[in-house]
Each structure stands twice: as C-alpha cells, then as structure tokens.
Simulated scan of single mutants.
Amino acid sequence: MDKHQNPWKIHSSETKYENNWIRITHNEGLNPAGNPGIYGVVHFKNVAIGVLALDEEMNTYLVGQFRFPLNRFSWELPEGGGALDEDPLDAAKRELLEETGLVASEWELLTRIDTSNSVTDETAVVFLARGLHQGESEPEETEQLTIRKVPFEEAYRMVQDMEITDSISVAAIQRMKLRLLGY
C-alpha cells in the first residue's frame, strides 16, 4: 500500500454538530490495522489568518484577549478568519486593521501551517506586514482586545518563556527569528 494514501476505510460519516464556523463529523470504519475504529474530525469553515506586523524600529504588535475555549487570557499576533473563497491577503489586511488599527503598505507570505492535524483540518496563513501607519481599529463585538507594541525580540522571548502559546503566533515568531538569523 502507498504510504501517502489514506489507510482508513470509512464506512459511515455523520455530522454531529454544525454552526457558522465549524462542523464536527463522526466517522466509523476500519483503522490502518484493519480493526474497527472511529475518528472525529472538526472541519473549519474558514482559514485562520495571522499577521506579524513589524515597524521600522523592529517593534511588533501583540493582541491580548480572553480565549473562551482555554478559559484564560492569551497574548498572540493579530489573528482572525478568512472565508475559504476569500484571498487570504485581503483577510489579513482586514484583521490587522480591525484588531490594531494598523495599515501596511508591504505584505509578504511568512508561513502556512496546519494548526492541529490530529483532529482538525484547520490551516493558517500568516503574513509579514511592513510599512505601517496607524489608522482606527474596528474590533468585532465578540472581542475585548488589549494591544501591546513590543520589540520583536521581546515577543521572541515571550515565545521562549511560554508566555505566548498560541500555535499560529509561535510558528510565525519562530519563523521570523530564523529569517533574521539568516536561515
């Protein structure tokens, strides 16, 4: 058998829950060993979007907010969701403006990641934004945000000290640090 093909043999799939953002599917069939097995999948109806904004002095912008699923406050990059049929760059521009009031004149794809490939199909696209100027933020009604402007090296330290644990933020900040080191 080709190791790049799905070894699961699915006999039934049933949607157990669905809302505007996710769908949870229960799958039954045979696992890779040929034994009966189940697999639950959380399908995301949006692409996760992140923005690492860097100004001329190498400061970046963090967004702090209470994250309901974690039941705790989290520091992270400006993030949000983009419709599956929307250009991720357009979504990134919107999210940066909504959450920080920043507008960037230079954009570059920084990374793409699978956020948690064991139970979800969520993917994230993260951009580097430069050439910043301040506008007016427009947070969504579900967001109560705190914005911090910090030196990039401080954000990197926060990742190293596990003060930033959001997977999209960690991946983007680590990737940028490697770029700055010449990798």
Rank of each mutant, 00 (worst) to 15 (best):
V126A: 12
E79H: 03
F44S: 05
F127V: 06
F73M: 12
D114Y: 00
L132C: 09
T100G: 07
V126P: 04
R67T: 14
G64A: 12
V47H: 02
S105L: 05
S105A: 14
V119K: 01
V51I: 14
G80Q: 09
E106G: 07
K45E: 01
L54P: 03
D90W: 01
W107P: 04
D121Y: 05
R94H: 04
V41W: 04
G131W: 04
F73E: 11
W107A: 02
L109F: 08
Y61P: 00
E86W: 03
G82I: 10
S105E: 14
D85L: 08
R112N: 11
E136N: 12
G82C: 03
E99I: 09
A124C: 11
G135E: 15
G82F: 03
E56Y: 06
G81N: 05
G101Y: 11
R112D: 03
T100Y: 10
P78K: 03
A92D: 06
V103K: 12
G82W: 06
L110F: 04
L77T: 08
L97S: 14
D121T: 15
V41I: 15
L110I: 02
L84Q: 12
G50S: 00
P69Q: 10
S137I: 02
T115I: 13
N117D: 12
S105Q: 11
G80L: 10
L109K: 11
P78A: 10
V42L: 14
A92E: 02
A83G: 09
A92V: 05
N59E: 13
S118C: 03
E56W: 04
A48F: 13
E95H: 13
G64W: 08
A129M: 09
E79C: 11
D90T: 10
E79L: 06
E98I: 03
G80Y: 07
G101M: 12
L70Q: 15
G131Q: 06
V63C: 13
V41H: 09
M58A: 11
L89T: 07
T120I: 06
E136V: 15
A83I: 00
A91V: 08
P88E: 00
D87Q: 07
E86F: 01
V47D: 04
D87V: 09
N46W: 07
P69K: 14
R94V: 02
V42I: 15
E122W: 07
E98A: 11
A53S: 12
K45W: 02
G40V: 13
F44I: 00
E76L: 11
D55Q: 09
I49N: 00
L102S: 01
G50Y: 03
V42S: 07
E98D: 13
E95P: 00
G135F: 07
W75T: 02
T115C: 07
L70W: 14
H43I: 08
W75V: 01
Y61M: 04
N117V: 06
L52E: 01
G82V: 11
F127A: 02
S137D: 10
F73A: 11
E99P: 01
P88S: 02
G82M: 09
L132E: 07
G135A: 15
E56S: 12
S118F: 14
F68W: 09
N71Q: 15
A129T: 08
A83V: 02
A124W: 05
Q65E: 15
L132R: 10
A83K: 11
F44E: 09
R130N: 01
E122H: 05
L97F: 03
Y39R: 15
E57Y: 08
M58W: 06
L109T: 09
F68A: 11
V126K: 04
G64K: 11
